[in-house]
Computed example of a mutant assay.
Amino acid sequence: MDAISTRVGQATLYLVFAMMAILLLSSIARTVFNYPLLWAVESAQFTMSAYYMLGGAFSMLLHSHVRMDVFYGRWTTRKRGVMDSVTSLFLLFYLGVLLYGGISSTAYSIEYGQRNYSAWAPLMWPIKVIMVAGIALMLLQAVAMFFKDLAQALGKELS
């Protein structure tokens, strides 16, 4: 799972540049040519959504998520492993519920051809599929992290 998260995360990093290119094109079109692009802002939003949803598992792998370090930094490695194992269970529950809702919403979007309420009115299912894929990757990475944390709590080390 770590290898998949790394590959997807490294590929996802480039979506920030795609989003910046979309917004730059929109600014040039609006200011230089006086031709606003209806699709630009939503495309940038969809690109950003894909960026943070697909990059979530990689962020977990790198431990670059936010953690309150009031007590955590002073704890032993085993105590950190115990606490991370316990909190991982809550994360797994949350991601499971999120995945269930995401699949349901995506199925609805595909079945009824759901479109966004805007002048451009893009189909919603492509971004919803990407979001469900990102949630699934995060869920699988969370399972992998749980077992690493559990091993750490038991005084063993998994790479």
Rank of each mutant, 00 (worst) to 15 (best):
V16R: 07
F17T: 14
A18H: 03
M19I: 14
M19R: 02
M19G: 15
M20K: 04
A21L: 15
I22V: 15
S27A: 15
I28H: 03
A29Q: 14
V32N: 06
F33R: 06
N34W: 05
Y35W: 07
P36C: 06
P36I: 05
P36H: 06
L37C: 05
W39Q: 11
A40G: 02
V41D: 15
V41E: 15
V41M: 11
E42Y: 00
E42C: 02
S43F: 01
Q45V: 11
F46V: 14
F46G: 01
F46K: 02
T47P: 03
T47Y: 00
T47H: 01
T47C: 14
M48N: 10
S49T: 15
A50V: 03
Y51E: 07
L54R: 03
L54W: 04
G55H: 01
G55A: 04
G56W: 07
A57I: 06
F58V: 04
M60N: 07
L61N: 12
L62A: 08
L62K: 14
S64V: 08
D69C: 01
V70L: 15
V70R: 09
F71A: 08
Y72K: 06
Y72S: 05
G73Y: 04
R74V: 04
R74I: 03
R74P: 01
W75N: 09
T76Q: 07
R78C: 04
R78Y: 03
G81H: 00
V82Q: 13
D84T: 01
D84Q: 03
V86Y: 04
V86F: 11
T87G: 00
S88C: 13
F90N: 05
L91M: 11
L92E: 08
Y94W: 08
V97N: 07
V97S: 09
L98G: 00
L99M: 12
G101M: 11
G101F: 12
I103T: 10
S104V: 11
A107Q: 14
Y108L: 10
S109N: 09
I110K: 05
E111S: 13
Y112W: 10
Y112R: 08
G113A: 05
G113D: 12
Q114S: 11
R115F: 04
R115E: 12
R115S: 05
N116H: 10
N116T: 10
S118G: 09
A119T: 12
A119I: 07
W120H: 10
A121K: 09
A121L: 01
A121Y: 03
P122F: 01
P122W: 01
L123P: 02
M124Y: 00
M124L: 15
I127G: 01
K128D: 12
K128S: 06
M131V: 13
M131C: 09
M131F: 08
V132D: 15
A133G: 05
A133Y: 03
I135N: 01
I135E: 02
A136T: 13
A136Q: 05
